[in-house]
Amino acid sequence: MSHQPHNIHAGTQVVTRVGVHGSNNALVHPRGAVGIVTRTPCGNEAHFLIRFPDGFEASLKADDFEVLKLFKDRLEAAPDATFELEPHVIYRCITGSRAYGLDTESSDTDLRGIYLAPPDLQWSLYGAPEQFEDNATQSCYWELQKFLTMALKANPNILECLYSPLVEKRTPIAEELLAIRDKFLSQMIFQTFNGYALSQFKKIEQDLRNQGQVRWKHAMHLVRLLLTGAATLREGRVPVQVGEQRERLLAIKRGEFAWEAVDAWRQELHRDFEQALMETTLPERPDYEAANVFLIRARRSAANLPP
């Protein structure tokens, strides 16, 4: 048995040493199936998330698989089968508390980004994974098509990526994307931002009734989400930084407000969000055609085809 390298990362192609089972313990893939690592373990975790060509994903320990390159090397000389993610990253930014202006000395640095799958991976049997996560580096990268799809659905995390004030990397293709980022903004923001906050506040109320506790950090971010969503409808951009609301929001995180005060503020924000929806000049739906044209142009660029 060959030794596993310690630097298995998102994008590494692997071969299973065990059969992969799904629900009801049914065999989904036999021993020797090939997949690609899409998420690495964090801290004391021991499992990697492996994606197979049919889209099935399984959580496996390092002993349950072998790096494809090493597997091939035992048989014959083979080209490097490891997909290096970084050369294909077109955009990387910092999100989370540091981007919001809510960071403290203990805050993590959350990295989010976009990668443009190379044609050989996009066209291969493996397909291009929609997402790579590396918990050790607090990073997550979405393949461009997945990113655009989520942006068109007004996913809050994705829209905040497009408007993050802390950008670490942007290629010319990413510059083109940022130039049309307003095309992804629409009145759907009300449904996604406001809808998510509503559902999560209901869970907080249930926790308060059942356990007598409030997750104050979560409550703070929900209030921030309501503030951001309403401002986006009014301004036609996503104001990621909280500005003058910083101290009030951090006071919520520290549990310095009674729940009744936080609940009253969030209900006020829900009403303000509805008012912003009535006043907004954003369209009802995002510009799907602009996103599609951009994606095709990016794919052609990656394949070195003329525009």
Rank of each mutant, 00 (worst) to 15 (best):
R31M: 12
A230Y: 01
A230V: 01
T12I: 04
E66Q: 10
L305V: 10
E76A: 15
V240W: 06
Y100L: 02
L177K: 07
D73N: 12
P87A: 09
S59I: 00
G96S: 04
F56K: 03
E175P: 00
E284H: 11
W265K: 04
T149C: 06
P53W: 11
R17W: 05
R17K: 09
A46D: 10
P286Q: 05
R92L: 05
I36L: 10
L208Y: 08
K202F: 08
K253M: 09
K253A: 07
V223I: 14
I158H: 02
W123K: 13
Q211E: 15
E235Y: 04
L102A: 01
P129V: 03
H29S: 02
F132Y: 13
S164T: 15
L226R: 04
M150T: 02
G113P: 03
A26V: 15
H221D: 03
E274N: 12
T40E: 06
E168Q: 11
E176P: 01
T12P: 01
N44G: 08
G236T: 10
T192M: 09
R31T: 15
A10Q: 03
Q206G: 00
A219W: 05
Y91H: 09
I252K: 07
Q187I: 06
S301E: 14
K203G: 00
Q13H: 13
L227F: 03
